[in-house]
């Protein structure tokens, strides 16, 4: 029963995380560029982006923890992360998700704090931080495509998909 609830929470948190990742990449970044051009970006950077980033980074943590708990509780954590046996496919998804979590907390969030003015930074530092955060965010968008493939298909490995 706890595995069922955990799996459900994992998917809810994952939808929140990846949904906001796609929002940032497909909507906010191009929208913000257009808003800056006509001088209406302030509302987005002040009210929208910090809230979206709050849900984004904590949803990433909940997704990883519920995923790790599931693997540990099922006794497949080690096999998945060393890509062993039938759990290797899920393991590839788990590694990609782990890299994405690292990107969120080590590259995206610290640099976004500079870009949004939540910590002090010069204009040059802000420009560099914006580029780093964008590339990390785009990397996560790219990684999410195989990550979701291996999460979905890996959880079906018991029916012999591979």
């Amino acid at each position: 029963m706890d595995l069922l609830l955990d799996r459900w929470l994992h998917i809810l948190a994952g939808v929140t995380w990846v949904g906001l990742l796609y929002y940032f990449n497909f909507v906010q970044v191009p929208g913000l560029a257009a808003a800056k051009a006509d001088g209406t970006a302030a509302g987005i950077t002040k009210h929208i982006a910090p809230r979206a980033l709050l849900w984004f980074r904590w949803a990433a943590v909940v997704t990883w923890l519920t995923g790790a708990y599931y693997l540990a509780r099922a006794g497949t954590f080690a096999d998945a992360f060393v890509l062993q046996g039938p759990h290797a496919y899920l393991g590839i998804g788990a590694w990609l998700g782990t890299i994405m979590l690292f990107n969120v907390w080590v590259l995206i969030w610290p640099n976004q704090k500079k870009v949004l003015g939540l910590v002090d930074a010069s204009d040059a530092e802000k420009a560099k931080a914006a580029r780093t955060a964008l590339l990390a965010s785009r990397t996560n968008t790219m990684l999410s495509i195989p990550m979701l493939f291996f999460m979905v298909t890996g959880s079906l490995s018991h029916i012999g998909m591979f």
Binding site: L135, M142, I145
Partner: peptide, 30 residues
């Protein structure tokens, strides 16, 4: 060479290419 991650389309195409590479790795190496 242009970074494919500079565009949304390049990012998505890179994701599909990486999926294919990892699929081949998973089936051929693991």
């Amino acid at each position: 060479m242009k970074n494919p991650l500079d565009s949304i389309s390049g990012t998505i195409i890179s994701g599909f290419v990486l999926t294919l590479i990892l699929y081949i790795f998973a089936n051929g190496v693991l």
